[in-house]
Computed example of a mutant assay.
Amino acid sequence: MTLAMLTHAFLAVIRADEHREHPAPAGLIPLTCNEMQRLFALPAAYPNDQRDHRLRWSLWRRRRQARARDCHYRRREATT
């Protein structure tokens, strides 16, 4: 349990540094701790061809989540 909490704290600190130094481009959500965990696991778990696919999948997922967030915010503004 302690190791899991330490890992999550490590990812949270890295995520905060990344947000401050390199904000997310327009159309993408910022990196989350879960997304960073997936990306850190890539080099050990997958060969190069699957690693490229996983990185593209991560970008696609972040773009789709940003689009969903924007639609949600527009819908909330329209109802108030």
Rank of each mutant, 00 (worst) to 15 (best):
Met1Lys: 13
Thr2Glu: 15
Leu3Gln: 11
Ala4His: 08
Ala4Trp: 09
Ala4Gln: 14
Ala4Leu: 06
Leu6Trp: 11
Thr7Met: 13
His8Arg: 11
Phe10Pro: 04
Leu11Glu: 08
Val13Arg: 06
Val13Lys: 07
Ile14Ala: 05
Arg15Gly: 00
Arg15Glu: 12
Ala16Asn: 11
Asp17Ala: 12
Asp17Trp: 11
Asp17Thr: 09
Glu18Cys: 06
Glu18Phe: 09
Glu18Ala: 10
Arg20Gln: 05
Arg20Cys: 08
Glu21Ile: 04
Glu21Arg: 04
Glu21His: 02
His22Ile: 06
Ala24Asn: 02
Ala24Met: 01
Gly27Cys: 02
Leu28Val: 00
Ile29Arg: 09
Ile29Ala: 10
Pro30Ile: 00
Pro30Gln: 02
Thr32Ala: 05
Cys33Leu: 07
Asn34Lys: 05
Asn34Gln: 11
Glu35Cys: 12
Met36Arg: 12
Gln37Phe: 15
Leu39His: 06
Phe40Tyr: 12
Phe40Glu: 01
Leu42Asn: 02
Leu42Tyr: 07
Pro43Asp: 07
Pro43Lys: 01
Pro43Ser: 10
Ala44Asp: 14
Ala45Leu: 14
Asp49His: 12
Arg51His: 01
Arg51Gly: 01
His53Val: 10
Leu55Ala: 10
Leu55His: 12
Trp57Cys: 00
Trp57Glu: 14
Ser58Ile: 06
Leu59Lys: 03
Trp60Ala: 07
Arg61Met: 06
Arg61Glu: 03
Arg63Glu: 03
Arg64Tyr: 05
Arg64Asp: 01
Ala66His: 10
Ala66Glu: 05
Arg67Gly: 06
Cys71Val: 07
Cys71Leu: 15
His72Gln: 15
Tyr73Val: 09
Tyr73Trp: 08
Arg74Glu: 12
Arg74Pro: 04
Arg75Gln: 11
Arg76Trp: 12
Glu77Gln: 13
Glu77Tyr: 10
Thr79Cys: 08
Thr80Ile: 11
